[in-house]
């Protein structure tokens, strides 16, 4: 029974954190079609923001505005210098952002060194829940993520900006024709996407290893999750996260982690092949 609860919570945790990590890429790849290979590096920058705040002796929460500013500014620069020339050329965005990712890793390496860094948990210890001990920070994190997604969902459905983004995604030419400034909206969307990635980095920093190359961990699985769930919807993103996260949890529990990893890859390949528009597609 304890084991069932543990696996249940682990499943919820992995779905929530994967969703959080993928969200930024969902905005950038799902809405703009930019295959941002530097996505993981923005998560990394977020984690380093948390580290900087910790080293300065400031409260952990301040890392959130810092990460948003750092990632947003860098994202703006990246959009202005490179990405805006490459919209609707997904392969080229893939290649260019791959180069940018190298620059970002090296930049952090120069500033902070190659060493592993440790960001303390602001809520250490475990909480007893349904008969098992579960890390307190994780529980809070899950609650934060769920709230965040709920707010985002409502905003995207209701707000004017959400409507304009949807219009731009569906038909950029038409959107431009009816007076939407797609260049500005694209830039804002891109900046938002990478800032969300940075936010994910802050929230995860106390739980994971922090080093210049950590971003690679998050990159490829993010793409697979997006494809499994289908691009462009929040529901799809959550479903994708739970399928990938769930497959990993279940296969790893029955066999081992290697099988779990191979299983996730196989599922991703099947989706890419048979249902590239996501699980809800009617094909």
């Amino acid at each position: 029974m304890d084991l069932v609860v543990t696996y249940g919570l682990n499943f919820a945790y992995s779905t929530a954190t994967l969703g959080l990590i993928v969200l930024g890429l969902a905005v950038v790849f799902g809405l703009l079609g930019v295959m941002n290979m530097a996505h993981g590096e923005f998560v990394m920058l977020g984690a380093y923001s948390a580290l900087m705040v910790q080293q300065a002796g400031l409260p952990f929460v301040l890392a959130i505005p810092l990460a948003v500013i750092v990632c947003g500014a860098l994202g703006w620069l990246m959009e202005w210098s490179v990405i805006r020339h490459l919209y609707r050329r997904p392969f080229d965005t893939f290649l260019a952002t791959w180069g940018i990712a190298i620059l970002m890793r090296k930049g952090v390496e120069v500033s902070f060194g190659r060493e592993y860094q440790s960001v303390d948990q602001s809520l250490p210890g475990t909480v007893s829940l349904m008969g098992i001990d579960y890390p307190a920070y994780r529980l809070v994190l899950m609650a934060v993520i769920v709230t965040m997604f709920a707010l985002l969902f409502v905003w995207y459905q209701r707000s004017n900006t959400g409507a304009r983004i949807k219009a731009m995604v569906q038909n950029p030419d038409l959107a431009a024709a009816v007076g939407i400034n797609t260049a500005r909206l694209s830039r804002a969307t891109f900046v938002t996407g990478v800032a969300i990635a940075g936010l994910a980095g802050v929230l995860l920093a106390p739980l994971v290893r922090v080093e210049p190359y950590m971003g690679l961990d998050y990159l490829l699985s993010s793409f697979f999750i997006l494809v499994v769930g289908g691009l462009g919807t929040l529901e799809g993103l959550i479903i994708g996260s739970s399928i990938i996260g769930g497959a990993d949890v279940v296969i790893s529990a029955i066999f081992d982690k290697t099988a779990g990893y191979l299983g996730v890859l196989a599922i991703s390949i099947l989706f890419l092949w048979l249902r590239p528009d996501g699980i809800f597609s009617r094909r």
Binding site: L3, Y7, N10, D217, D248, S252, A253, K257, G260, Y261
Partner: peptide, 14 residues
């Protein structure tokens, strides 16, 4: 045994 790419250890810890 875990692949090099493993970054979630929950099932192992369980």
């Amino acid at each position: 045994y875990l692949p090099f790419t493993a970054d979630n250890f929950d099932s192992n810890l369980a």
